[in-house]
Amino acid sequence: MDIFLVVVISLIIGGGIGFSIGFFIFSIVLNRSNNFGDTRLNDYAKASEIQITYKADRIQRDPAVLKQHLEYGMRDLINQPAHRAIMERSVKNPDSDPVSHNV
């Protein structure tokens, strides 16, 4: 009886492990077999010539400092000549205007 109990419990635990292994393997196979065309965000970097400039610093754990860094970082970005130059060239049409009428 005691060995039978061990066998039943190990069958259940082993079955659970087996299910997760089986589900993992065949879900991957299913994804490869039946799912076509997942776009990877990396593709945009190649297609749209992405250029990124950034800076990152470790900062103090203080709500006032966090807010200051957030706002200072943004202000610094929008005061840059590149931002100003493109702001002058940016679209300013009202939201309701159809884009195709913009000739």
């Binding site: 749209s48 992405i50 950034y54 103090q60």
Partner: peptide
């Protein structure tokens, strides 16, 4: 730790 990150991107 907290980090401040600021950057711009052109596409």
């Amino acid at each position: 730790y907290y980090y401040a990150r600021a950057g711009h991107m052109k596409m």
